[in-house]
Each structure stands twice: as C-alpha cells, then as structure tokens.
Design a protein around this nucleic acid. Structure first.
Lengths: 347, 347
DNA sequence: TTGTATGCGTTATCAA
DNA sequence: TTGATAACGCATACAA
C-alpha cells in the first residue's frame, strides 16, 4: 500500500527522524542527506499520512465553515472567498450547513467533527441573545454575522445599522418617501434583520419622516421566493410604496420579479435596493443597486483571525490575548434599479 | 485537556476496551456496564478523537468535493445537495475549488488531502481526453460531468447531447429559426460545450435547417459576464438571431441582461433558454426557461456510489465490482423567456 | 462479557 | 547532524 516514512528511511538508508526532518523542512540537514531522502520519497511516491501527523500534533490543516446553506448566493460567494483565503495559509475547508436550524447549529458547536478541524468560522442564524455561554468553546473560533456577540470570541461583522441607515438615506435623497422594507423579523433586535431595520428607522428620523409599520414586509427566510411573497403582500395592501429596501439581494431580486410580473416600472414607479452585492445583482434588469458588505474582507479577516488564534493558543487561553471584533467596510453600489439615468448606470 | 477513553474507563471502573465497545455500539455489553460508561462519558464530556480512530481504521468520515468554484450557482447548489446527501450517511464534506486550472485539478487528484478523506467527488474542467490515466487512483472516486471518462471509474453525468437536442427542438417547435448558442468552446468535442453543441446541430439537422456558424457565441468561462459579452457580439454581427440557447443559466441570464439593456423584447423578439435550472433562473424577468439536469439525483447518486465503493473496497480493487455510469434524467422547464402566454407561465 | 497488549504513522525528546 | 524510542488515542486480536 502507500509508503510510510519507514519505507523511505529504509530506502534512503537513514533513520525515520531524518526523513521527518526533511519532510518538515527542518534546516539542519546535510544537503547530501536531504537529496538522498528526496530521491527515495520521489521513488516511492511517498506522501505524509496527515491523519498520523494530526494525532501527533493535534492539527489537521482543515478549518470548518458553518453557514446556513450554500444555495444562498451570499454564502456561496463567502465560502468561495474563505476557501481561497484558507488556501493561502495551506488550509482546506470543510463546510457544514445548518440551515438556520437551532439543533444543527448546536451540533456545529459541539459535534465530534471539531476534532478533525483546527478551527471554526461560524455564521449562526438561530442562535441569539441568551446563547452567549454556548460560544465559550475550547477550540479556535471566529464568529460571523450579527446574531450573537460575546466578548470572549473573535468576531467579523459589519456596520449593519450604519449601512442600512446610509442605504435608506440614499433612497430618501432620491426623493422617495414611502420606502418599504422586505425581510423584517418581527420583534427581533439582534440579527441582521433587527439591526438593518434600526438603521432604516434612524434614517427616517434623520429626515423627519414618520415611521409607518404598514411598509414593513416580513420574511423569515431571506430567499427570492419569500421576497416575492412579501412584495406581493405589500402591493396588495394600501401601503403604496415608492421604493423597496430588501434586507438582502435575494429578497430584493424576488421583490423585483414580483413588481415586474405586475407591470410596475423599476425604478420609475418603485425603486429597489438590495444588500450583499452578490454577483447576480449585477445582471438583473435593471441591475440591482445594493450595499456591498465587503465579503472579501470578511473572508480574509476571518481566516487570518483563526490562524492567529491557533498560533497563539496559549495566550488566548489565559486571556493575555484579547479577542477582537472587526467591522468590514461597506459601500453603496448604485445601479439601474434606483436610478434610470444613463445607459451606463443602468447596466 | 480533552478526556480520552482512558479517562472514561478509569472513571467508570472498566477497561478501555469496554468503553470502545460502548462507543461503537458493540451489542454484547451488559446494560449495567453500558450505563456506567455512558454516565462517565457524560460527566467528562468525552468525545471520540476522530484523528486517532482514523489512524487506526483508515477512515475519516470526510469526503471531498472538488468543483470549479462555488461562485457559480450551479456548483453552489450541487454542493448544497452533496452536503445534505453526505449527512444522511454520517459524512462531512470538504470542498476544494480548482477554478478550472489544470495544475489545481492535478493537485486534487494527488494532493496530500486525500489522506484525510474517504473519497472524492470530482467535477473537472481542465482535464480531458488524454488524461484518462490520471484517473486511475487508489481511493474511492466518483467523477462528475462530461470532460473525461474512464471505464474504471464510477461516473454520474447526464444525457447532454439528448438534452441539448430536445432543448433546441423545443425552440424550433416555437417557430424559431435563427437559434444562436452561447457558450461554445471552439474545437471542443468532449465536455459540456462540445456535447451540447452536438445536440444543437442534431436538432437542426432533424428539422432540416442549415447550420450557421455565425450563430455561435464563444464563451470560455460560463459566467454571466461572458454570456453578456457573447450576446453583445452576436447582436453586433449580422447573425440576426430570434432565439438564444445558453449552455448554462449564468450565460443565458447574462445574455438576457444584454438583450434587455438594448431594448430587445424577450421572448417576442428573441427567446432565451438556459441550462442547469439554478434557483435564480426562476426569478429573472421574464423567468428563464431552462433544462433541469437533475442536480438532486446527481448529488445523491454520487454520494451513494462513493459509500458503496468504500464499503466494497476489496471487490473494487480486483475488478470484481464493475464501475458504473449513471445518466441523470433531464427535463425542460418552460417559463416566460420562451413563451409569453399566460400570466402563470410567465412567472 | 470484559480485559490486556499491540500497532496505526507521525513528531518530539533525548542522546550520540 | 542524525538516530533510537516514546508517546498521541483508538480499535482489535487474543486471552481470560
């Protein structure tokens, strides 16, 4: 079967330790010896048994990424970036989907899988206020999103309130006054839905425009389908919106579809704005204006934090190292769904 | 640190073997003993060290899925299904992106990662005719797609030629006569591009319509952006299409966007048909008609094949077990981008 | 039904 | 600079 270090050592006429030294790039090996070993490795087509190394060192070279589901383009694109960022560090990524199911999210935190990974990048959806204690795990972890926070855990998130406030303000600047939102979670305060709604309300207050609950479109899951449903409900009510702010792009695209099916002109009759800057947002027609949350930055930062945690395990344990919270930069991407204007901006 | 079997054994007052028996569900353990052990496990919060078990058994419970990139919705959705199917078998999925880069695809086949996984589901893009020997690996593998085939390897694919032929025939039935295609790879015979083009040509021949090369839109990468570019080129030539068949949905959606930017009516002026049945295809406006390749079936079949291979490693090695090739079922989903018709079909 | 002992392929400690 | 050898935590052959 597969060759082991012993086989290589025997063929090269050295000890197993020397082979190990060569494999791991230990500097104090005579060039001649190294050459012999490399030749043997080549000849036997030897590859390190990562499982054995893992048992010995306790590290696997695998990090886990737990997200709701890859079918949501935002998470697919985030996963893409995380995989590439991990690769830069010589790490591979194991992906777990929890679908926003509480049980599955708990499994992610306590599952046996944790033994096989060097760390976890976790984007929860069901966990929230009250579950902070569950985050006190003894393996490297970086939290994503805004469902839950804990001082003891590294976290990468974004300025949700500010971004939503800026997005709403942008729509107000365009002269829109009846701005509907899609993606509201009734009663939620933490979490993207709660925070983005807060930003929306702040922007309205800034502009002295009264808050009208009839403009709120509920949507538990942030899929295209639910966005379309919420939009339909808004249109069939007497809310009379002249703009829609989707709490993510999928919702906004679903809403846009519903508007178009009903013959509503975008942006003339109703302007549409999304959140996430997923690729498809560029190719709807009109192209969807959206808030870019800095996916790339979120991914690279999260991986870097995980690597740092692993490297400084000791100081993290005794609290010498303070966990940090990073807020990614956001910006509003203006496209045709909010401003008809020129041919160029429409695309 | 983390408790080991020894700790559990000591606390429960039994031997490590007994703990092992309990953990692995060995039936012949006295109920009383089992209870003691379980109590100790609970008290110590013990979890099996998968790395150690792996070293011993040679199995990890992880399978690898190698795809071009998760940013392509088709692969994101496929990965979603594979993860869920794997979960049914108690397996986790490690995802590798090769981006269609030959070097990275070779790494996938020979990489050290293979030690950490029980098998590989591989969807290559760069490998092709002439690379068959590279597929003769000594670990469980299931091949996806149509780039490359090898009698010795399990394979899940689809009737590309027939599906493209049926899709083209469908457009012809609608009365379209100048059907452009987007996504052509010049000179390619194997691979989705080559096969789908062949299906297209067969359908034209069936209908007695001459093949016109000026209707072919090249696109190396099957992204929305390249679809839009190819469409633009077709429109600026004198090809004069009355329909467009995108070799995947991303291409078709990109093409659709380009058409709409230019004020072309869909489907009145030009009908658009895609391939893959990704979620977003349902929410463009008009919704994109497309070929459903049976992603779900592909995913579950591939995982099942991998599990079977692992279970029957012996018979696979000595050729008792013949590798199989499965062709997933396809069907054409008719939506508004090809038939304006009723409100219902438009959605 | 349960216990003892061995080895899986590495890395790391210590000598040489 | 290199070698011998002891873990790492578990599964299993064999014994009891």
């Amino acid at each position: 079967m597969a060759a082991t270090m012993h086989d290589v050592a025997r063929l090269a006429g050295v000890s197993i330790k020397t082979v190990s030294n060569v494999v791991n790039g230990y500097p104090h090996v005579r060039a001649e010896t190294r050459a012999k070993v490399l030749a043997a490795i080549d000849q036997l087509d030897y590859q390190v048994n990562v499982a054995a190394r893992n048992l010995r060192t306790g590290r696997t070279g695998i990090i886990a990424l737990a997200v709701p589901e890859l079918s949501l383009p935002y998470f697919a694109e985030l996963a893409d970036r995380v995989i590439e960022a991990a690769r830069e560090h010589g790490l591979t990524v194991l992906i777990e989907q929890h679908g926003g199911d509480r049980e599955r999210e708990l499994e992610v935190l306590s599952g046996a899988r944790r033994h096989l990974t060097d760390g976890l990048i976790f984007s929860p959806l069901a966990l929230g206020a009250g579950d902070e204690r569950l985050l006190e795990v003894d393996f490297p972890m970086v939290l994503l999103g805004e469902r839950i926070f804990h001082d003891g855990v590294d976290h990468v998130t974004m300025h949700n309130v500010e971004a939503a406030r800026a997005a709403t303000a942008y729509l107000l600047e365009l002269g829109r006054r009846r701005i509907a939102v899609v993606g509201v979670h009734a009663g939620e305060v933490v979490g993207s839905a709660g925070l983005r709604l807060e930003g929306y309300r702040l922007a309205l207050a800034d502009a002295g425009i009264p808050f009208d609950p009839s403009l709120l479109g509920e949507a538990g899951l942030w899929h295209r389908a639910t966005g379309a449903e919420a939009m339909a409900a808004l249109l069939e009510s007497d809310a009379g919106p002249d703009a829609v702010f989707g709490f993510n792009d999928a919702l906004a695209l679903g809403a846009m579809h519903e508007l178009q099916v009903r013959g509503v002109r975008i942006p003339e009759d109703i302007a549409v704005l999304g959140f996430d800057a997923i690729d498809d947002a560029m190719y709807s027609f009109p192209a969807l204006s959206t808030v870019d949350p800095g996916k790339e930055q979120i991914a690279t930062t999260a991986v870097q934090m995980l690597v740092d945690q692993a490297a400084n395990r000791q100081s993290y344990r005794n609290g010498v190292h303070r966990p940090t919270r990073v807020y990614a930069d956001f910006r509003i991407l203006v496209r045709g769904s909010t401003e008809p204007a020129t041919e160029a901006s429409r695309r």
